Simulated scan of single mutants.
Amino acid sequence: MKYIVIGLGNFGSTLSTRLTAIGHEVFGVDNSLEIVEQLKNKVTHTICLDSSKPGALNSLPIQEADQIIVAIGEDVGASILTTALLKQHNAKSIISRAINPLHQTVLESIGIETIFNPEKIAAEQFAKQLELSGVLESFDLSDHCSILEIEVPKRYLGRTADNIDFFSTYGLKLIAVKRYETKKNIIGMMSKFASVNMNLDPEHEFDESDILVMMGNIKDFQKMIGSDL
């Protein structure tokens, strides 16, 4: 897919390099030449321009982009102006970052449906990692149901999949087992790639390289993890 990421601060630069690493074509845009130069070997394309100025966006492949992410952080005015200009260019899909409720309200008023706050998302995930030892990633399906990526509890290392019934014991559903391997990406850089096994062999023996992808209630995760503490 083709992405345009506007604003290459901590969040935007991480997003751009990650999307590039997993094989997408990314146009990273920032008004700082220094930042653009730092990322030129990590992102497919880097462009220095002020996206809040009329006419500046004409050099970008807006119509060809599958998604455009406005990741501008502290400069709320630049974020709003950039988003409004993208709307004028009839961009297919615009995702904008909001740093406070007022910022979000303004973005909603100009017709942006997908708005995110990376600080809030990161804080919620970090709180879950602090609460539950071994949690690597989390996604909430509802107030009572989450999908977590979690390290294999120590007491299950060396045991086979058919020897453990997570659902009967804890009410947790094992969806898949994930592992990472390092190999070259599309631009020749060494990156980590995940392999996900959703059809687990009953004879699969869990080891420390396995990451369990599980679904259930946080209280049930606490019961399973707490047994190892």
Score class of each variant (00 low, 15 high):
residue 199 N to T: 15
residue 79 S to I: 08
residue 173 K to M: 09
residue 170 Y to L: 05
residue 81 L to E: 03
residue 106 V to L: 12
residue 133 S to L: 12
residue 192 K to H: 10
residue 202 P to W: 12
residue 207 D to W: 15
residue 159 R to D: 00
residue 52 S to W: 03
residue 42 K to C: 12
residue 209 S to H: 14
residue 155 R to C: 05
residue 107 L to K: 04
residue 217 N to I: 15
residue 97 R to F: 09
residue 187 I to Q: 10
residue 204 H to S: 10
residue 175 I to Q: 06
residue 35 I to G: 01
residue 210 D to F: 02
residue 186 I to F: 08
residue 159 R to W: 01
residue 51 S to L: 02
residue 207 D to V: 03
residue 186 I to D: 14
residue 203 E to F: 09
residue 159 R to I: 04
residue 212 L to S: 05
residue 26 V to E: 05
residue 171 G to H: 01
residue 17 T to E: 10
residue 207 D to K: 14
residue 10 N to H: 14
residue 80 I to C: 01
residue 120 K to L: 10
residue 35 I to T: 09
residue 188 G to C: 14
residue 135 V to K: 15
residue 23 G to W: 01
residue 27 F to I: 12
residue 110 I to C: 05
residue 170 Y to H: 08
residue 38 Q to C: 11
residue 63 Q to H: 11
residue 176 A to E: 06
residue 171 G to R: 02
residue 57 L to F: 01
residue 221 F to P: 02
residue 162 D to W: 14
residue 194 A to I: 02
residue 97 R to G: 04
residue 29 V to H: 11
residue 100 N to C: 13
residue 58 N to E: 11
residue 115 I to V: 07
residue 145 C to P: 03
residue 54 P to R: 06
residue 152 V to N: 08
residue 136 L to G: 00
residue 78 A to M: 07
residue 137 E to P: 06
residue 64 E to G: 03
residue 223 K to C: 04
residue 108 E to K: 15
residue 158 G to F: 01
residue 137 E to I: 04
residue 66 D to C: 06
residue 147 I to A: 01
residue 59 S to W: 00
residue 6 I to Q: 06
residue 129 Q to V: 10
residue 148 L to P: 04
residue 63 Q to D: 14
residue 171 G to T: 00
residue 133 S to Y: 10
residue 46 T to I: 04
residue 53 K to T: 09
residue 24 H to P: 01
residue 64 E to R: 09
residue 164 I to H: 03
residue 215 M to G: 13
residue 12 G to R: 08
residue 166 F to Y: 12
residue 187 I to E: 01
residue 179 R to I: 07
residue 149 E to I: 10
residue 202 P to T: 12
residue 71 A to S: 15
residue 147 I to Y: 03
residue 177 V to C: 09
residue 60 L to D: 05
residue 149 E to T: 11
residue 176 A to S: 13
residue 11 F to G: 00
residue 10 N to C: 05
residue 48 C to P: 11
residue 179 R to H: 13
residue 68 I to M: 09
residue 46 T to Y: 08
residue 20 T to I: 02
residue 219 K to L: 04
residue 58 N to R: 13
residue 40 K to T: 13
residue 86 L to F: 03
residue 124 E to W: 01
residue 78 A to T: 02
residue 86 L to V: 05
residue 66 D to H: 10
residue 139 F to G: 02
residue 38 Q to A: 07
residue 190 M to G: 00
residue 137 E to K: 15
residue 44 T to N: 10
residue 134 G to A: 12
residue 217 N to C: 06
residue 136 L to M: 12
residue 178 K to P: 02
residue 28 G to S: 09
residue 185 N to A: 07
residue 2 K to N: 05
residue 161 A to E: 14
residue 173 K to P: 05
residue 82 T to Y: 00
residue 113 E to R: 15
residue 116 F to I: 12
residue 159 R to P: 04
residue 160 T to Y: 06
residue 99 I to D: 08
residue 90 N to F: 11
residue 172 L to D: 03
residue 64 E to P: 00
residue 24 H to Q: 06
residue 98 A to E: 02
residue 80 I to W: 04
residue 36 V to G: 07
residue 194 A to T: 05
residue 29 V to K: 13
residue 225 I to A: 10
residue 132 L to I: 12
residue 145 C to V: 14
residue 131 E to T: 14
residue 155 R to N: 13
residue 121 I to N: 04
residue 175 I to H: 04
residue 6 I to W: 05
